[in-house]
């Protein structure tokens, strides 16, 4: 991988102030610039004027599946923009969101369960961006 010196901008969407703060600290530690949004709606309006390099979005926000809708909207506008979804839902409901090849109704590139570890976030971002942070 080649090191790209220009700053990476990440859109971070979560309705929980604590996860927003933690995500911001982790991303800034990686040298990223962070744009925060507290709801799907706010994220959509930010995306109208900005194309971030990646998005890290929460699943449950104003609606229980706001994250799915948002991922859909992001990919509709910027098909190549990497989307990482974070959720605490998986083990709580017994539902799993494992990405099944060929069944990609979930428009996120990867789903991470909360709390997200810094190392894991770094690895996934680098993989999806194709460069080292």
């Amino acid at each position: 991988m080649e090191r790209i010196m220009s700053e990476t901008t990440v859109l971070l969407v979560d309705d929980d102030a604590d996860f927003l703060l933690q995500g911001r600290l982790q991303l800034e530690q990686l040298g990223c610039r962070v744009i925060e949004a507290r709801s799907r709606r706010e994220a959509v309006s930010i995306l109208e004027g900005t194309r971030p390099d990646a998005a890290v979005i929460d699943l449950m926000m104003e609606d229980p599946d706001a994250g799915f809708t948002l991922a859909y909207q992001i990919k509709g506008r910027y098909p190549d923009l990497p989307v990482i979804m974070t959720t605490a839902v998986t083990s709580a409901t017994g539902l799993t969101f494992e990405k099944v090849p060929g069944e990609d109704w979930i428009r996120a590139d990867v789903i991470l369960s909360k709390p997200v570890r810094a190392a894991q976030l770094k690895a996934e971002l680098e993989r999806l961006l194709g460069h080292v942070l």
Partner: peptide, 23 residues
């Protein structure tokens, strides 16, 4: 379960940042 998990996750996340001496 979800309502109980969110605070645990939030605290867990902070502990992780503290453990790694992020600041």
């Amino acid at each position: 379960a979800h309502e109980l998990k969110s605070p645990i996750n939030a605290v867990d996340g902070y502990l992780d940042l503290i453990r790694n001496r992020l600041l």
